[in-house]
Amino acid sequence: MKRITFLKNLSYGLGSTLLGTTLLSCSKGTDGPTVEIPSKVLPITTKGKLRIGVITDVHKDFFPDADLYLQKFIDTAKQSNVDLIIQIGDFVYPHFKNDGFMQIWNSFEGPKYHVLGNHDMDTASKSDFLTYVNQKQLGNYYSFDSNGFHLVVMDTNYIKSGGIYTDYNAKNYTKHPANEIGYVSKEQLDWLREDLRKTDKPCIIFSHQPFNGSAGNSKEVQEILKEENKKGKKIIAAFSGHLHKNWLIDIDEVSHIQVNSASYFYVGKNHPTVTGRFPASVEANYPIMKESAPYDDSLFAIIDFDGPDREIKIQGRKSNFIAPTPYDLNYYTYVDQQSPSSNIDNRIIKF
């Protein structure tokens, strides 16, 4: 028998065998209808383990103890042997007077990352801020891999008016209504879709404004995450700041975690102001404190991402409101996830 004929006959035989096996495994009895067994889409996995330090809304220019609170974070990050640190916005004005604050941040010798917050552009442009914190090369949105995970940093600081996206710059966003601010640009949405498609690692999202509704086009971002996860769960968590709150919300199997401010909860202008928490000279330089409920200790989190156990472990911190609290003043009368808290909760999240 010629070799080509032998191979052809062998392939026919193997095909029949495989086909028969498949039909037997999928049929219910010899004469019954074929039962379709849906294929389970497996999650994206990693054997990696990653430990990071996360802090947000330190507000150097609003809060008198910002240097001290940042120093506590840096000291803890060093002691905890984190792989990297990241701050999620509203960090510092890019002014020479804040160089000492930046020296504290830069004393961490490992990788350091910044997320743009709206107040970071109160007195300057995005380019000015990124230059000041030495992140001009990475840009305002970017991604990177670390220990088997893919980390994605988003920029939610665009104005959308008349279909045009405009960068925040020198507090220009304050001249627009709430439904026109806090957007992700169209270009960035396209980038996000492609960036997630290309990676083969579990993904962690960071943004200043939350994607559960606070960001202007949260629904568009949620849809991108949902569509990518249909291929096998890839996006495991989305961390945000901005609201100075302490909550966890699951949306389409993605854990959205709101990281509380390092420094204070902003009560707002619609309530009577409170004085006496700080010396008069301090309150004169930090007037927003009269409209806020500051914390008596720094808040931040050390977060472990465990690939083999598919687990996120958040080690938070507890503090207290410097009296009087929002509850003492009857600004709030109940406690749930959306009420003021002076803590970052410990959490264990499976993914």
Rank of each mutant, 00 (worst) to 15 (best):
residue 8 K to D: 02
residue 145 D to F: 02
residue 133 V to Q: 01
residue 154 M to A: 10
residue 323 A to L: 08
residue 76 T to K: 15
residue 49 K to F: 12
residue 254 V to S: 01
residue 157 N to Q: 07
residue 190 D to M: 06
residue 312 I to V: 15
residue 80 S to D: 13
residue 97 K to P: 00
residue 332 Y to H: 15
residue 312 I to Q: 05
residue 173 Y to F: 14
residue 112 K to N: 04
residue 312 I to R: 08
residue 110 G to F: 00
residue 137 Q to A: 13
residue 1 M to T: 13
residue 332 Y to Q: 12
residue 225 L to K: 02
residue 315 Q to G: 04
residue 73 F to I: 11
residue 214 S to R: 12
residue 30 T to G: 13
residue 140 N to P: 06
residue 15 G to W: 07
residue 29 G to S: 04
residue 132 Y to E: 00
residue 90 D to L: 01
residue 126 K to E: 08
residue 224 I to E: 03
residue 27 S to M: 10
residue 84 L to G: 01
residue 143 S to C: 10
residue 8 K to S: 12
residue 334 Y to W: 14
residue 216 G to E: 02
residue 135 Q to A: 13
residue 290 K to C: 09
residue 62 F to N: 12
residue 310 R to S: 14
residue 26 C to F: 06
residue 278 F to S: 03
residue 175 K to R: 11
residue 207 S to P: 08
residue 106 N to T: 09
residue 283 E to N: 10
residue 103 Q to W: 02
residue 38 P to C: 05
residue 212 N to Q: 10
residue 217 N to M: 02
residue 19 L to P: 00
residue 89 G to Q: 00
residue 313 K to N: 14
residue 152 V to G: 05
residue 232 G to H: 05
residue 70 L to E: 09
residue 69 Y to E: 09
residue 314 I to P: 03
residue 341 S to F: 11
residue 258 Q to R: 13
residue 149 F to D: 02
residue 237 A to E: 07
residue 272 P to R: 08
residue 133 V to G: 01
residue 263 S to Q: 05
residue 123 T to A: 06
residue 261 S to H: 09
residue 50 L to I: 10
residue 307 G to V: 09
residue 326 P to N: 12
residue 42 L to S: 12
residue 101 F to M: 09
residue 339 S to G: 09
residue 212 N to K: 11
residue 181 I to D: 05
residue 196 L to T: 04
residue 246 N to Y: 09
residue 167 D to F: 06
residue 89 G to P: 00
residue 125 S to L: 08
residue 115 V to C: 03
residue 14 L to Y: 06
residue 130 L to H: 04
residue 130 L to P: 02
residue 186 K to S: 09
residue 221 V to I: 14
residue 150 H to W: 01
residue 315 Q to V: 07
residue 350 K to Q: 14
residue 217 N to Q: 03
residue 174 T to M: 11
